[in-house]
């Protein structure tokens, strides 16, 4: 049984013109693997990430998503998170009045509660947070500040990966985490993700550019165009895309 199995997933926008965005996606991901999903703007990459995390606004018209044997699409977003799914947002949300520390502690303890585990003690939590903040080279003063409020673009993205490092998800989905990052921040983010890589977890890296994949080396690369996976391959596919652009796959689109 694959860790995550997406079968023939079709999805549309819930409101307005109800445009179909995903037109039959199938993908199997096993533990220990890193999959990159690449594709031009508007190909449906972020939609796929959003649907996996449970964001409102999309209607799955057919197909299934099974996570560790359970129907992922039936779960509330918080249950998905508790079961180990984590989405690093493309646009992290500012939450004025809620400190990073409070937020993370509430998240961590909610997840523990879901598994009938006792709350983490304050001292244990503080230690964990300190350690992960160091890993992400995140200024400790940011921890006491409101979630993402007044953070720079890079700080927001690093904060996402920091949250991921604290929550230790089984399936991490990075939605364009590299956009807007300079090379130093990119390396820090990659370090955070690589530190999470293990035989018990999987990572999906959604990205437009190959750049991040120099630092988070994927096992598989899939190219998404117009809501379909038009080509899958190894890490070398990313390099080929970098070199030739998405245009060379337009024939594949016709075939798919």
């Amino acid at each position: 049984m694959p860790f995550l199995e997406i079968s023939n997933l079709h999805a549309s926008i819930e409101e307005g013109d109800k445009k179909e965005i995903l037109k039959g996606i199938s993908l199997q991901i096993n533990k220990g693997e890193v999959h990159a999903i690449m594709g031009p703007n508007g190909s449906g990459k972020s939609t796929l990430a959003s649907i996996l995390a449970g964001r409102d606004g999309y209607e799955v018209t057919s197909g299934t998503v099974t996570f560790e044997g359970a129907d992922l699409l039936e779960m509330e977003p918080e249950v998905r998170a508790a079961e180990g799914v984590f989405l690093a947002f493309q646009y992290p949300v500012e939450i004025p009045g809620v400190t990073n520390t409070y937020f993370l502690r509430a998240a961590l303890n909610s997840i523990r509660k879901h598994h009938n585990q006792p709350e983490m003690s304050m001292s244990e939590f503080t230690k964990l947070v300190k350690e992960k903040a160091q890993l992400m080279e995140l200024d400790s003063s940011l921890l006491g500040r409101s979630v993402n409020e007044g953070f720079s673009g890079g700080e927001k993205k690093r904060n996402e990966i920091f949250q991921m490092a604290v929550l230790q998800p089984k399936l991490a989905i990075l939605d364009e985490t590299d956009s807007g990052l300079d090379i130093d921040a990119l390396k820090i983010v990659a370090n955070g993700v690589n530190a999470l890589r293990s035989q018990d977890r999987a990572v999906i890296v959604v990205t437009h550019y190959q750049r991040l994949l120099n630092y988070i080396v994927p096992d598989f690369v899939h190219v998404l165009m117009e809501g379909k996976i038009v080509k899958s391959g190894g890490k070398e596919l990313a390099l080929e895309l970098e070199e030739k652009g998405y245009g060379f796959l337009e024939n594949a689109l016709v075939e798919a």
Partner: peptide
């Protein structure tokens, strides 16, 4: 904002209360 909190494991009612 609500989705952001929920996506980190915080149940709906509590996420709402926090906001």
């Amino acid at each position: 904002s609500l989705f952001y909190l929920r996506s980190r494991g915080i149940p709906y009612e509590k996420a709402k209360a926090i906001l």
